[in-house]
């Protein structure tokens, strides 16, 4: 009875917060305009005014989206554990396995620091290397922060294109890696690791546990990325107002065929998270960089990171890492060329 009461209180609180969220989000543009035009009395149309307007509008908008969606993603993720994902992938045929692994890569909680135990756990369960790679490519590339930022700054179409092409790259790259039979390039000790003696111990969560997990996901992720969001949008806002239109058209425009491979080459060693890089890319697009090139750049930065390679080096031989990076980079390049041609 007491528990029920507490549950209702929590639910009511969530409803109040959600209503406040909707009201604030809906009125953000008029609030920003009021602040800029009336309260501060700045003249519209000037570079500084427009940069400031962009910044004051975009920062709360993106942060609001992040809080809301990460909360729900946190709840959804409480239903998916790496152990369950492994179970689902056991004994699947190559292509089906790749598709499922890429899809599960989106929803299974994953942090690159857990890449090694996850990799070992998959290998122990006899999951083919190609299927494991589909997971390892999709999980970091298609993460909620990237998708929310793309949605907030580019709209749902670009966000959807990113998710779908990311999935295709993860599925096909994993499939190719599977066909190449690269098992011999995994470090030998991996196959000797044993996990006898421990039974599966699934945790059971109540509804209010899951709400709490959603909230702690918001605290953890937003607490970590907000500074990148603010910095990224600040740089974006400055460029938005001051850098002339079509500034980058010549260098990185459609006519320059090398722009896609070049942006991947710049993107791979550049280590940043989605929160910092996407606001800056949004300005690239505004200043004349075509979508395919921008997409390739973001995927290279977010999906192919050097620190993750270093972590994976523990279990994979250098040759395997090089093949892996080359296949994924080729996939990203094809996506870049396709979108530069059709858009």
């Amino acid at each position: 009875m007491l528990y029920m009461k507490a549950g209702w209180k929590k639910l009511l609180l969530i409803l109040v917060v959600l209503t406040a969220w909707v009201l604030l989000y809906k009125n953000l543009q008029s609030l920003t305009d009021w602040l800029i035009d009336s309260l501060l009395g700045l003249t519209g149309g000037k570079h500084f005014t427009e940069s400031l307007r962009f910044f004051i509008f975009e920062v709360p908008k993106v942060l609001l989206l992040l809080c809301l969606i990460i909360f729900f993603v946190g709840i959804i993720r409480s239903f998916f554990t790496p152990e369950r994902t492994r179970k689902a992938l056991e004994g699947k045929s190559l292509f089906t396995g790749n598709v499922m692994a890429a899809l599960l890569g989106i929803v299974t909680p994953f942090c690159s620091c857990s890449a090694i135990p996850l990799f070992l756990g998959f290998v122990q369960a006899g999951i083919p290397i190609g299927v494991t790679f589909s997971f390892l490519i999709a999980a970091p590339m298609i993460n909620e922060v990237a998708v929310i930022l793309l949605f907030g700054l580019f709209g749902w179409k670009v966000a959807l294109i990113y998710v779908v092409t990311g999935l295709v790259i993860a599925i096909l790259s994993g499939w190719v890696i599977g066909r190449l039979k690269l098992e011999k390039y995994v470090e030998e000790w991996v196959y000797q690791v044993s996990n006898e003696g421990q039974e599966e111990n699934g945790e059971r969560y109540s509804f209010s546990d899951r709400i709490a997990m959603g909230l702690s996901a918001v605290k953890e992720i937003v607490g970590k990325v907000w500074i990148y969001v603010v910095a990224g949008i600040a740089i974006g806002a400055a460029a938005h107002g001051y850098v002339p239109e079509s500034f980058m058209t010549n260098l990185m425009g459609k006519s320059a065929w090398y722009s896609v491979p070049l942006s991947i080459l710049i993107g791979v060693p550049l280590y940043s998270n989605a929160a910092g890089i996407i606001p800056i890319v949004s300005v690239f697009i505004e200043k004349g960089v075509p979508l395919g090139t921008a997409l390739a750049f973001m995927m290279a930065v977010i999906g192919l990171s050097l620190p993750e390679m270093v972590i994976l080096r523990k279990v994979l031989k250098v040759k395997m890492l090089v093949i892996f990076a080359a296949i994924v980079a080729t996939g990203i390049m094809i996506v870049g060329f396709i979108f530069n041609t059709i858009m």
């Binding site: 135990p117 756990g121 044993s194």
Partner: peptide, 8 residues
């Protein structure tokens, strides 16, 4: 890995 866990 002896404890059969996949996330740290």
């Amino acid at each position: 890995m002896k404890y059969n866990i996949m996330s740290t």
